[in-house]
C-alpha cells in the first residue's frame, strides 16, 4: 500500500460522498446521470464478489462494503426518493453501446476463463467507460452544477492517482496488471477534457458551461 493508492481510494470515496451530500442537501438529483450510477453499481457488484471468497485485509473489506452501500443508496435516491427531480430527458445515452462491447471484450481479453475472473474483467472494462453517460448528459444540457463538477474532479483524480500507484508498484514490487493499467489509462483520458474545463473555469469561480 503506497501513498498514491491511499489518496486514490480516499479521492474515490470523497467523490461518492460529495454526490450523496449534494442530493441529500438539495433534495434533488438534477444533472446527475442515473445511467452512470447504475453502471458504477454494476462495476462494484461484479468486482467485489470476492467479498464472499477471500479476506484480503480489513481496509479492503471495509472500503468495498462502503463503496457498495453508497452506490446502492445513490441509485435509491435517483430512482426512488428523488425520482421527481431526475432529469431523464437529458440522460439519453444508450447503455447497450457500452455494455455489449464491454461484455465482448471481457470474454476476449482476460486472465482466466472462469466466472469470477470474467466478472472482474468486465468490471474493470466497464468502469473505464461508466462515466460516459454523465459526460454525455453534461454535453446535452451544456452545463453542470459546480458541486457535480467537484464530484467528477475527484472521480477523475482517483484514476489518475491509481496510474501513479501502478508506476510505483511496478518499480518497487515489479507488479503490473495490464488489464487494469490499460483500462485505467483509457478511463483517465476521458477526464482530460473535463479537467481542463474544471481548472480554467470552476476553480476560477465560474460555472461549468459549454460554448
Amino acid at each position: 500500500m503506497n501513498v498514491f493508492r491511499i489518496l486514490g481510494d480516499l479521492s474515490h470515496l470523497l467523490a461518492i460522498l460529495i454526490l450523496l451530500a449534494k442530493m441529500w442537501r438539495s433534495k434533488s438529483c438534477a444533472g446527475i446521470s442515473g445511467k452512470s450510477q447504475v453502471l458504477f453499481a454494476l462495476v462494484f457488484s461484479t468486482r467485489y464478489l470476492d467479498l464472499f471468497f477471500v479476506f484480503i485485509s480489513l481496509y479492503n473489506l471495509v472500503m468495498k462494503v462502503i463503496y457498495l452501500l453508497c452506490s446502492y443508496i445513490t441509485i435509491y435516491m435517483i430512482y426512488g426518493k428523488l425520482r421527481k427531480t431526475y432529469d431523464r430527458e437529458n440522460d439519453t445515452f444508450r447503455l447497450e453501446f457500452l455494455l455489449i462491447p464491454v461484455i465482448g471484450l471481457s470474454f476476449l481479453e482476460n486472465y482466466d476463463f472462469i466466472p469470477t475472473e470474467l466478472l472482474w474483467t468486465f468490471s474493470i472494462y466497464l468502469e473505464a467507460v461508466a462515466i460516459l453517460p454523465q459526460l454525455f448528459m453534461i454535453s446535452n444540457t451544456g452545463e453542470a452544477e459546480t458541486i457535480t463538477t467537484h464530484y467528477l474532479f475527484f472521480l477523475g483524480l482517483y484514476r489518475a492517482l491509481y496510474l501513479a500507484n501502478w508506476i510505483w508498484r511496478y518499480h518497487t514490487e515489479k507488479f503490473y496488471d495490464q488489464i487494469a493499467i490499460i483500462s485505467g489509462v483509457v478511463q483517465t483520458i476521458f477526464y482530460c477534457d473535463f479537467f481542463y474545463l474544471y481548472i480554467t473555469k470552476v476553480l476560477k469561480g465560474k460555472k461549468l458551461s459549454l460554448p
Binding site: H12, D50, I56, D112, T116, E117, L119, W120, N165, D177
Partner: peptide, 10 residues
C-alpha cells in the same frame, strides 16, 4: 492458477 483473490486493489 490465477483467480479473483489476486486482485488486491479496489
Amino acid at each position: 492458477e490465477p483467480d479473483i483473490s489476486d486482485h488486491d486493489e479496489l
